[in-house]
Each structure stands twice: as C-alpha cells, then as structure tokens.
Design a protein around this nucleic acid. Sequence first.
DNA 1: CGTTCCCTTGAGTCTCGTCAAGGACCGTGG
DNA 2: CCACGGTCCTTGACGAGACTCAAGGGAACG
Lengths: 214, 214
Amino acid sequence: MTTIETLGRSSITDDIVIGDHRPARLLDNSQPITFFPAGSEIYAQGEKCGNLYQVEFGAVRVYRLLADGRRQISAFHMPGEIFGLEGFGTHQFFAEAICATGIRILRPSSSDRLELLPLALENLARSQEQLLVLGHQNAIERVAAFLLEMSERQGGMRLVELPMPRSDIADYLGLTIETVSRVFSKLKAKGVIRLPNLRSVELTKLKTLQNLAA
Amino acid sequence: MTTIETLGRSSITDDIVIGDHRPARLLDNSQPITFFPAGSEIYAQGEKCGNLYQVEFGAVRVYRLLADGRRQISAFHMPGEIFGLEGFGTHQFFAEAICATGIRILRPSSSDRLELLPLALENLARSQEQLLVLGHQNAIERVAAFLLEMSERQGGMRLVELPMPRSDIADYLGLTIETVSRVFSKLKAKGVIRLPNLRSVELTKLKTLQNLAA
DNA sequence: CGTTCCCTTGAGTCTCGTCAAGGACCGTGG
DNA sequence: CCACGGTCCTTGACGAGACTCAAGGGAACG
C-alpha cells in the first residue's frame, strides 16, 4: 500500500490516507482516514497494540485462528464503531477489512483512559451476548439472531446489508457455510426473509424472526 | 438470611457477616466477609449494580437465563477473583454461590475507576476464550479445555477440585449433563483422568488432555 | 435406614458437518 | 458484446455426534 500525503482540505477525500497507519494524536474526528482494500489486514495477532480504530465506511472482521486452521470471528464492526481494545501488550486478534473500508486511527492519550472503560464494557456485553448464541442456540436461532443484530446495528431497517461473505457469517456463528446457506434458504422458503441479492436481506416477517431467535 | 454484627477480632470468622450485603467503603481487604450458603443468590439480573465482589472462599457461578429456561453460565469465579463488573446501570446476570462461599463486597470509589479497566479487559479476554470453545469445539475438546482451565486457575495442580455439579459444567460448556458425564467416563476409560470422587478430577495424562483441547 | 439429589449409562432420534456436484455472479480479456 | 475463469453460493446424500427420553446406581443427609 502507498501513502498519499494530504495538504489541502477542499474535498471530503482530502484527509484520506491510503496505506499504513499514521500516528493519530487524539480521540477526535480530526484524524486522517486510512483506506484498506477488501481483505487487507488492519492489525495482526501478536502485534503491539494501543491504538484504537474507528470505522468510517465499509466493515471489519475481528477473529482468531485455532491451531487446526479453524477461525472464530469474534465481532464485525460497522461504520461509527470503535474497535481494537482487546488486551494489554499485544493484539489477541486479527482485524481485516471485509470490503473497501475507511478507518480513523485513534491514539488515546492517558487522559482518555476513563473513556475506555465504557468501550470495554460494551465489548464485554457483546461477547456475552455471543456466548448465549453459541452456547445454546441451534442453526436457525443463530442466523435469526445474527440478522436481527445486523438490522439493529443498521438502524432497525427491514432491508439489511451484509457486507461479509457467507463464510464469515459461518465462522461468526460457529456453523458451516452450507448450514448458513441452508438456513437462509429455509427462511426464504417460509417467507420470513427475501434475498434481493447475495449481500442484502429483507426481513419480511420481523416478528417471526424474533420468535425464531428465541 | 440473618446478619451477625461483628465486634471482636479474636478469630478468623470474626469479620464474617452472614446475610445481605453491607456497604463496603474501599477496594481493599478491610471489608467484612459476607457468607452465602450453597445455592444462594448474590445478585440478580435487573438489580442495580456498582459493587464488586471478591471471592474469599467457595465458588460462584454467573449466568443468564433464556426465555425457554435454558441457562448459559458465562463464568465461574474462584477464591481471589473479582466479579460483578458487567454493565452500567443494572446487572445483566445472576450470580449464585455454588457451595458455601465467603464474599468480600467492594464498593469502588470514583478514584478506583482506572483500576476497573484491567478488570474489564480480563473479563473480556476470558469471554473471548470461551467464544472460541463454544464456537468450534466438540464435546471432548470442551471438557478438556474446561479441566485445563480449572487446573490453571487452581495453580496448575494435577488434582483439580470441581465445586460445581455436572449441570453447571454442562451449562457452561453448552452441553447436556449426559454428554458431560459420558465424556468424563470416556476420558477415564482412556486413562487420561481419574475420578477419586464426584467433585475432584486427577489429570493423569496432562499432555494427552492438552492435545484433546486442541 | 430411607429419601433425595445427582450422576451414569443405554437406546433411539435428529441436527448439523462432511463430501460432492452444480449454479450464480463478476471480473477480465478477446 | 460475449466468452471465460474464478469465487462464492446453493443443494443433495450421507454419516457422525450430541440431544432426548428413560432407567438404574451411588452418595449425602436427615
């Protein structure tokens, strides 16, 4: 990736930096935006951490790899959300851009330490929610919960955009892509959802879906 | 539960308070210990939160209930560990004493806010670990991981005490008690573990167990 | 000594993973 | 514009693993 220095401010793209991270000074909106192409790595397990990352556009997956190659996606991050707070010395996860993604890299100063607690608690709450899903839900319940979660995080719209491929959904829900696909088909056959195209879902029977999520 | 006021200091039980929570002043060791009998509730979902709880002796389970009665235990807490940091306004979980348990109730002051971040991150890390287990591990891998986790948290001993019943292990690992029991039997048949009694396990082939945990 | 709770074991069922094949979408290049 | 290749998605058949239902055993407690 190459870096483009920004000098002026005449367009919205002027503060976009393509390429590697640049140090950010404060937890505010004056930081430049770094562009990550689809599939590119934002940070890797084992790298030292300390920065935070705010999604401006696009989407991010955060995951770990097991020894045998299995992958557990622990979270997706959508525009507006902040991620990267996951340990003390080094990152415990990989973070990748799912599609073309703009990231604002934030370097919290020590005076921002108190701001981090709510963030950590939010991440914790979401992990716990995920534990509930992975612990005791079957395939239909998992997919239903996933669709409802995505809908909520996009403002409760009936038409939900899914920037990630089925394989990501599978690794997030602890299923296989075949099972995810089958559940999509079954929900579609029951009229609970519509699939206008591969990457979007219309929740036509919201209540039914909520019941399925249990 | 009844409350016993403490006046003297002539024995180790002198600062034990039986019964409901008493306000604690600081995050230190000068707080009284509250005693909870086996099965008693420490806090409930929906209660306002703010206090922290340190296990002095015994063990605690933290869990959520689903609408249909299924239960997901999100964590066990052993002596020395601090729990109760799980949200902003109200508790999102139930906490119960597994067996006779002594709890030091801590009321962190605002100056302790910075101390909470490491605690939150630790909880987060443990949740993520659990996500890995529930997401992609089969029954044997889950039980093996559980036994190793318990062993580590008890100082890496080969003889591990399991204060909780099989039903708790099942709800922690996202399995049924029958499956947990069958895996125990299978591990025992293979000589990987011994079961001196119901509530203790000896890890006779540690390496095999580590391989099984994958 | 009896009751109760917890644990173990067995048999049958069902869900989901595996393996395999085929189809849709999308870029590139002719 | 169309052919082509690759990637992603869907669907089917089959089998393994875990759950359900059911019965029996063992330890703790009064």
